[in-house]
């Protein structure tokens, strides 16, 4: 289960709408505890894919990731997951998402329909990399 505050959900939705029709992306810092992942901080990150691909792709570079890891360690938190948007597309992970994901992390997807945030889902990659499993958002 992934827990976020209404304010954090609002931050993600606003980011998704601001970047529409491009995909937005960001990291979530927090804590894992007994199967519950609690988000303490949402970090919007600039999508580093080339402009022409941003409508269906996002990239958080290793340098950005490194900064997130350092910030998390400094705050005694962990990088617990990442979010991105699917403009005018369902909030379901793609094959491309699956091939570029790691287990444990929560991959939160927000669908943006005609510029307005819509359904939000969260997914965790199975350890054998075969598929994503949806998790509850609370």
């Amino acid at each position: 289960m992934l827990t976020l505050t209404q304010e954090q959900i609002g931050t993600i939705c606003k980011h998704a709408e601001t970047e529409y029709p491009s995909e937005c992306c960001g990291a979530m810092l927090g804590r894992f505890d007994n199967g519950i992942c609690t988000v303490c901080e949402v970090l919007p990150i600039s999508n580093q894919r080339e402009e022409a691909a941003k409508y269906h792709r996002f990239l958080i570079t290793s340098q950005e990731f490194l900064q997130c890891e350092k910030q998390a360690r400094k705050q005694n938190l962990e990088v617990v997951g990442f979010y991105h948007s699917h403009p005018d597309h369902p909030a379901k992970p793609s094959q491309y998402d699956l091939e570029h994901s790691l287990p444990v992390y929560s991959y939160l997807i927000v669908s943006v329909q005609q510029g307005k945030s819509d359904k939000m889902t969260s997914w965790i990659l199975q350890n054998d990399r075969s598929q994503f499993n949806e998790e509850e958002i609370k």
Binding site: I60, T61, L66, P87, S94, Y96
Partner: peptide, 15 residues
């Protein structure tokens, strides 16, 4: 040494 992934993804079908 730090192992650092880049995080990538995106929706299924091109517009």
């Amino acid at each position: 040494l730090m192992l650092i992934p880049a995080i990538a993804g995106g929706r299924e079908t091109p517009r």
